[in-house]
Write a protein that binds this DNA or RNA. Structure first.
Lengths: 340, 340
DNA sequence: GCAAATTCTGCAAACGCTTGCAGCGCAGAC
DNA sequence: GTCTGCGCTGCAAGCGTTTGCAGAATTTGC
């Protein structure tokens, strides 16, 4: 069957031009040090002149594996993800891997598509950093036998490593710190992910408040993730009857939105109201006032993930394992004594 | 030559299990409506049970083309890029394309690698959003015949569309606005990209200042891109002998860093000092005080790029073209009359 | 100067998929 | 009963690489 000859250059063209076989060209391009150097340079010259770029699809097909690290995140916009992503990318490049990212935008259809894509690409390793994931999908990844790491979702098994942050502790530390400042009415602002870690944070929040001071009041507000969402939640809070002296936000990004709205309302932070975030993104340090938040070591998490799927840790233990991270409270200027 | 049989499922396995040929399986999976429905469901069942995922490398190899949209950006961290990226991604998904992003981190070696990757992947279209690019590399892309769009770099040619923002106008608008507020000593804070658009902004800045008020003083400071860089540049500025009444920043991100440092120094914005940004990222509206900046319509840019490489615009004119965007000044609260 | 050892190079199969073409089975027409 | 037509399915080539193996070219040893 004769198909139209692709315009794109291929090994044959280079081989012909250099007067050698495709195998030789292949060996030159893969730096196999068995080719005579005169041949070698002839081939390189030909490749150069023809503007040849190896077809990576053909290559990974022939090799039977790729050197691609797949990353799935639910919201690239959030610097939290971005930081993990950057570490991962740096590690990957350092070890000669390519990186492919897929963004799910919190939509489960997109998550399915992303997983399909990664499995279809036969990635060498997969990092999944999303806020929720159906058990079924997790199993799909597990069955694929591709070394994977999940952040805050699922449970460890054969090829899957799990990284969890102990939100409970983070929230507890925050609440007890606020408590010690005299706060007795606190609000929690979360976003619309109802499953997984987020809801854990909410639940823990309520428990912690009640434990620290049984008489304290607590209430939860919800809005979409992001700056706008934070603002919107603050709006709702202001319009509600609840008058907290402190607001805990599910992440720093939302906290910035919250502070913006409070400022607009003429409220001073922390004089009138304390605000805390979660994650300790760079911005937390740069906003006004600098945000008290819970530090999550994103670089460390990135390294751990890489090590467990493509790095050295992978070699030591074949079966997946769980790694729990213990976060710390970072006190800055957005929190102060409760207004009496 | 017998190679180790891959663990991964393939068409053959599914075909065997369903008792049909691989061609039939392929047709089912590609939704070619020629397969008898009883066969069809048998195949689907088999694929499901075997947890089969088509090998995308083999697929694009066989098809001779991919449906991948490649995107290269120099700094994912900057919301400016992120916004374009998101629009592009949405458009791509809407038309059934996959997306692959590569991040260059402002490093030219990474840029080369990214271009190699994209060409190797035989992407269907390529969007390049970086702050500088060697002519040689641009030619490589041009020679590849892959429909591409460059943002703010290079010149249009056969398969390449060019999108430019008229920085000159943006800067002029900003400077003349500040001038009208009485500012006569202005500083410009840029980052380390010395070529291309950035340096255009710097040059234009100097020209504009001198045109608006010939007696005015202008000075330029430089630091790495990002929040920290802004802060660092502000630090230098403060320590220098130059005492501007207004600071223009090359982008909003750096402006936020600048404002942070000024605040720390006890300076009030805009009472003591006016600050402007560039891009009008979301954050500009949420920082304190909200930032006066130049709006660049990133969604529009994203759509234009997509249309020109994979969308309808592509069909109309085969040769590349140049599109210039005219930015507008957005006045918020970070600017005010010059301190006398 | 010749055989043996050592480089180097080419052949051809395999990777997993798509797809033009041919062929099978079966319905209806004659 | 034969023929035509049609709906489905299978065959096999081809996409651009990699790579084990064997053979060609070159060097070495004596």
């Amino acid at each position: 069957m004769r198909r139209r000859r692709s315009l794109a250059m291929n090994l044959d063209a280079v081989a012909q031009k250099a007067g050698v076989s495709t195998s030789t060209v292949s060996r030159v391009l893969n730096n196999l040090e068995v080719v005579k150097s005169s041949t070698r340079s002839r081939v390189l010259k030909a490749a150069e002149e023809l503007n040849y770029h190896p077809n990576l699809h053909a290559r990974s097909l022939a090799r039977g594996k790729s050197r691609i690290l797949g990353i799935i995140v639910s919201n690239m916009e959030n610097p939290f993800f971005l930081d993990i992503y950057r570490t991962l990318e740096a590690d990957a490049h350092a070890r000669g891997h390519e990186v492919v990212v897929a963004n799910t935008d919190y939509q489960s259809a997109q998550l399915v598509a992303s997983v399909q894509l990664m499995l279809g690409l036969r990635v060498a390793g997969l990092a999944v950093i999303v806020s929720e994931m159906e058990e079924h999908l997790i199993q799909t990844v597990a069955n694929s036998r591709i070394p994977a790491a999940f952040y805050d979702v699922g449970t460890p098994q054969r090829n899957i490593t799990n990284i969890r942050v102990d939100y409970r502790k983070g929230i507890k530390k925050t609440v007890s710190y606020l408590s010690s400042l005299g706060h007795r009415r606190m609000a929690f602002i979360g976003h619309h992910s109802t499953l997984g870690p987020i809801s854990e944070r909410r639940k823990t929040f309520l428990e912690s408040v009640h434990r620290c001071s049984p008489a304290a009041e607590a209430k939860i507000f919800t809005a979409p993730d992001g700056l706008d969402g934070g603002r919107q939640a603050a709006r709702e809070l202001i319009e509600s009857a609840f008058r907290p002296t402190a607001i805990l936000c599910v992440n720093d990004f939302m906290a910035v939105g919250v502070m913006r709205e409070l400022r607009e309302e003429g409220l001073q932070i922390p004089r009138d109201l304390s605000v805390t975030g979660f994650d300790n993104i760079k911005l937390a340090e740069f906003c006004s006032p600098p945000l008290t938040t819970v530090h999550i070591p994103r670089e460390q998490i990135g390294h751990i993930i890489f090590d467990n799927i493509l790095g050295e840790a992978r070699d030591h233990h074949e079966s997946g394992r769980e790694i729990v991270i213990d976060p710390d409270l970072v006190v800055r200027d957005s929190t102060g004594p409760a207004k009496t």
